[in-house]
């Protein structure tokens, strides 16, 4: 990993399109500003990881589990619009 020290108000540039600026430092919290082209998606890492995890868990459900799920649904009366 590349490690750089930056002070409040200083930036780094990634390629020529993404600029990351340290806006404020308060205790162990750092506020960061990011300028990037709008097609670049930006996430808090833990949120992206949570979505990846949820997706991996959702992938290709076992037929038996789907069957049990639909059974639970039927017992409930299938709500439909």
């Amino acid at each position: 990993m590349l490690v750089l020290s930056r002070k409040k108000g200083e930036s780094i540039v990634i390629q020529d399109q993404i600029e990351v600026t340290v806006l404020a430092v308060e205790g162990d919290t750092v506020r960061i500003g990011i300028s990037a082209p709008k097609h670049i998606d930006i996430f808090r890492q833990e949120i992206y990881a949570a979505i990846q995890d949820a997706n991996r868990e959702s992938a290709t459900p076992l037929a038996a589990d789907v069957e049990a799920f639909m059974e639970r649904l039927r017992n409930n009366g299938l709500k439909k619009d």
């Binding site: 868990e57 959702s58 639970r72």
Partner: peptide, 18 residues
Amino acid sequence: SLVTIHSQANKSTMNLLA
């Protein structure tokens, strides 16, 4: 929403965040 089917059906979830 993507559904995560749990082996205990009633614990199944859906992803409302994404």
